[in-house]
Design a binder for these strands. Structure first.
Lengths: 194, 194
DNA sequence: GTCTATAAGGCGATAGAC
DNA sequence: GTCTATCGCCTTATAGAC
């Protein structure tokens, strides 16, 4: 792996673990096994390196989400697959966690990939919900955009609850609650399968 | 206001704005208008001062939540009041944001107030959902604990979406989606009031 | 390209005067 | 109780040798 590549990968790991404010160039260099000169040769500084790292992480998450959401099954099943997909819950969301970083939010450049990623996933989810409505799987009065925001928020908030309690269980509990709500339909009095 | 009091309040503000890693003793002292000697006389250090600040913030949030949840109205209405209560959405949750702080999560002492606060609110919400089930307002197959986790997660995740997009709108959209799901019942084909 | 050296300033904490 | 002085280390960045 090339030096700039190792620098970006080390930065990605550290941003995930400690955020932007908590990550120092020194720590990045140690992890990448590079000297200070290398970093300032390939990148303008911490901000520039973080930008490259964040962009890559954002793209990777978009691809992962799309991979699950484009899978087989009914709209409900695809949403369920997205909610239940394997996650390093206690590590938090590598993209979502950046929103709690003051320096990231303060920089339009650093925030952009974060915003675009969450927005893209939300749009994708909204379309799937609308699809489910057409098929009669979801109640007609539900709004695709709203439900999509609720789904994404439940995931992002699930990370918060899990990290607060120190256990992934809280994430799963919230997901089960959301799925039970999504499975409930006005047109039946039967208990939906869980 | 006494010096220790000003120190705690300044720390609370900075923890909310910048988190634990992003907050330096120097910044606290400047905001509190105190010298370094004062801080180390009243507190053992940054950790100790942050502990006092976090405990107070946690307690305040518990009181605010309890104030809304103990209000009048049906279970649904009380949950709606909780979800719609006035919030500084773009500032994020002063308690929840601490879960993204590596040093807070790494310290059992600092994490405890965060965990207890979210847990307490979740328990409260769970009870209200169960109440709603008894009254026939919520479908009998819904699980109180699960729905409570979903509600809390939607709120915590709503902050993330809002900060990512730089607008409180995303928070409100997620909340509306959750409310529309909670208002849907299996026993009616009528469109629920929104 | 990568290295070491150096810089000015901040970090978190301690010492000791007043 | 509060202050200033000092500590050793880290921070982000630049300079210049190799």
């Amino acid at each position: 792996m090339s030096t700039p590549e190792r620098l970006i990968e080390s930065t990605r790991e550290l941003l995930w673990e400690r955020g932007y404010v908590g990550t120092s160039p020194k720590a990045i260099l140690e992890r990448a096994g590079a000297g200070q000169g290398s970093m300032y040769h390939h990148f303008k500084g911490k901000h520039d390196l973080a930008l490259a790292a964040i962009r890559r992480t954002a793209e990777e998450l978009r691809a992962t989400a799309e991979g699950v959401l484009a899978g087989p099954g009914t709209p409900y099943e695809r949403i369920e697959a997205y909610l239940r997909r394997e996650r390093d819950v206690l590590r938090g969301c590598p993209v979502g966690r950046l929103t709690m970083d003051p320096d990231v939010v303060a920089s339009a450049e650093l925030r952009a990939p974060v915003d675009e990623t969450l927005d893209r996933i939300r749009e994708r989810l909204a379309g799937i919900v609308e699809e489910g409505k057409e098929q009669g799987q979801f109640a007609p009065w539900l709004d695709g955009e709203e439900i999509a925001a609720t789904i994404l928020a439940t995931v992002q908030g699930g990370y918060v609850l899990a990290r607060a309690s120190g256990s992934p269980a809280a994430f799963d509990t919230g997901v089960r609650g959301l799925l039970s709500l999504l499975a409930s339909r006005s047109t039946t009095t039967d208990r939906p399968e869980t």
